[in-house]
Structure formats: C-alpha cells, structure tokens
C-alpha cells in the first residue's frame, strides 16, 4: 500500500458518499445516470468475486464489501425509492454498446484464461467506460448540479491517483499490470474534459454548464 493508492481509495470512497448524500438529502436523483450506476455495480460484482477466495487485508475486504453494497444501494435509490425523480429521458446511453465489446475484449486480451481472471479483466475494462452514460447525460442536459460535479471530480481523481500508484509500484516494487494501467489511463482521459470544466467553473463558484 502507498499514499497514492490510499488517497485514490479515499477519493473513491468520498465520491460514493457524496453521491449517496446528494440523493438522500435532496431526495432526488435528478441528473444522475442510473445506467452508470448499474455498470458500476457490475464492475464491483465481477471484480470482487475473490472476496471469498483470497484474503488480502481487513481494509481490502471492508472496502470491497462497501463498494458492492453502496453500488446496489444507489441503484435501489434511483430505480425504486426515488424513481419518480429519475430522469429517464436524458439517461439514454446504450449500455450494450459498452458491455458487449468489453466482454469480447476480456476474452481476447487477459492475463489468464480462467473464469475469475476473465471476470476481473472484464471488470477492469468495463470500469474504464462505465462513466460514459453519466458524462453523456451531463452533456445532454447541458449542466450538472454542483454536488454532482464534486461526485464526478472525486470519482475521476480516484483512478488518476491509481496511475501515480502504478508508477510508484513500478519503480519501487517492480510490479506493473498493463491491463489495469491502460484501462486506468483510458478511464482518466475520459474525465479530462470534465476536469477542465470543473477547475475553470465549479471551483470559481459557477454552475457547471456545457456549451449546449
């Protein structure tokens, strides 16, 4: 464990807490893409199957349980509890356009052709594009609530910090995992446009609006 990975995990945890707070406090999931949340639940479910087979540390297990539980709780809030506030008309990204290519890629490019490893690879690839429905929805509505932009910033920073962690582990532990690194870079690049808007607008107290 290093400070970059720890701060990445904290940023990830923060993002999830911000999202849950936003939905719970405002009792609304307006502006939130339910499809991205479904994809995240799929990411955690397929990645953390080793929850029962390999124990790394209490921290690792606790975080995995939290990520899985919170992703399903968010889906419950969006599609059941506050479904009247779910903006279905703007959450129109076709998930199958993400899941199918990623599934094929996981079978073609992986470290080990075993079920657990292919599911892990599928999860890594899927996570890199899972935010697209949410970013697509923000571009479609042309704006995002400030709290939602904080959620996206924290979520984007988590994998950006993981990239620094991978550089650190390469130089100090001789460890690297190209699948995770390439997917992580793609994932972070997808946030760049949003990061620019977040820094130039939200941090100056303005509303996050996209040029329609």
């Amino acid at each position: 464990m290093n400070v970059f990975r720890l701060s990445g995990d904290v940023s990830h945890l923060l993002a999830i807490l911000i999202l849950l707070m936003k939905i719970w406090k405002t009792r609304s999931c307006a502006g939130i893409s339910g499809k991205s949340q479904i994809l995240f639940a799929l990411v955690y479910t397929t990645r953390y199957l080793d929850l029962f087979t390999s124990f790394i540390s209490p921290y690792n297990t606790a975080m995995k349980v939290f990520f899985i539980a919170s992703s399903y709780a968010t889906i419950y809030l969006i599609y059941l509890k506050f479904k009247a506030t779910y903006d279905r008309n703007h959450d129109t990204f076709r998930m199958e356009f993400l899941v199918l290519p990623v599934l094929v890629l996981a079978f073609v490019v992986n470290h080990d052709f075993t079920p657990l490893e292919i599911l892990w690879t599928f999860s890594i690839y899927l996570e890199s594009v899972a935010i697209l429905p949410q970013l697509f929805m923000v571009s479609k509505t042309g704006q995002a609530e400030t709290i939602t932009s904080h959620y996206l910033f924290a979520l984007g920073m988590y994998r950006a910090l993981y990239i620094v962690n991978w550089v650190y582990r390469y130089y100090f532990e001789g460890f690297y995992d190209l699948i995770a690194i390439i997917a992580g870079v793609v994932q972070t690049v997808l946030y760049c446009d949003f990061f620019y808007l977040y820094v130039t607008k939200v941090l100056k107290g303005k509303q996050l609006t996209l040029p329609a």
Partner: peptide
C-alpha cells in the same frame, strides 16, 4: 498466482 496477478488492489 504469479506476482502480476496478485490483484491486491481494489
């Protein structure tokens, strides 16, 4: 598991 596949990260 080879070192690379430790998957010790979240």
């Amino acid at each position: 598991w080879s070192k690379r596949n430790m998957h010790d990260e979240l």
